[in-house]
Amino acid sequence: MRDFYGVTLDTPLMLGTAQYPSPAVLAEAFRCSRASVATVSLRREQGGGQDFWSLIKELGVHVLPNTAGCHTVREAVTTAHMAREVFGTKWIKLEVIGEEDTLQPDVFGLVEAARVLSEDGFEVFPYTTEDLVVAGKLLDAGCKVLMPWGAPIGSGLGLNNLFGLRAMRAHFPDVPLVIDAGLGLPSQAAQAMELGYDAILLNTAVAKAGDPAMMAEGFARALEAGRLAFDADPMEPRDMAAPSTPVIGKAFLE
């Protein structure tokens, strides 16, 4: 597996910690998911309670704080600094939201914030679109990981632009790529892995499932299946049938 700023993850799953029915359910979902990274928000639902932080630390996984809910470069940079203090990590999942209905990133603000934070020693995981030009500028700004969306946050629509995501993988073969946001089902996660993505980041699909732990288990297995499929070098699809036994020269014709 590719490394994320020098860290090799045991599994390709990054799991969010918001919106679970209770901390007990959250912990159980993490166990079942085998996630190796927990994303946490300093704002909104997670407010900053010490009890909640200790619970996250007890999960025993890497912590990736995010700047969820930030709409400007300045907000995002301030939140990143607070996160670094609270969690003692240089990692930051950078979100600069540009539009309220789709929660899609403001890519201009994103590139700017990525530059500011990278220069300040942060290791930035930018939540971006599949736009190749923006991706290139994020790398120029100092990012060594890219996190394109599958679909709008919390929508569960899956991989909305297969062409764009495939192009991104082909265009940046050596950059760790993470599908962040929009997945609702394990099959969609498997598809991301089959495309050669290095990890996926989820939250709502697990937290809002009727049985979060069971859904987490489903994602864990799908990720493994997708990874195996990619590593196994799948066959190329073709237009005509390709019989597995020869047709001409059959010994018995009816």
Binding site: R44, E45, Q46, G47, G48, G49, D51, F52
Partner: peptide
């Protein structure tokens, strides 16, 4: 709201 924190002031949000 349900915020994982202790506090005695409401946020503007």
């Amino acid at each position: 709201t349900q915020i994982e924190a202790v506090g005695d002031r409401i946020t503007a949000r």
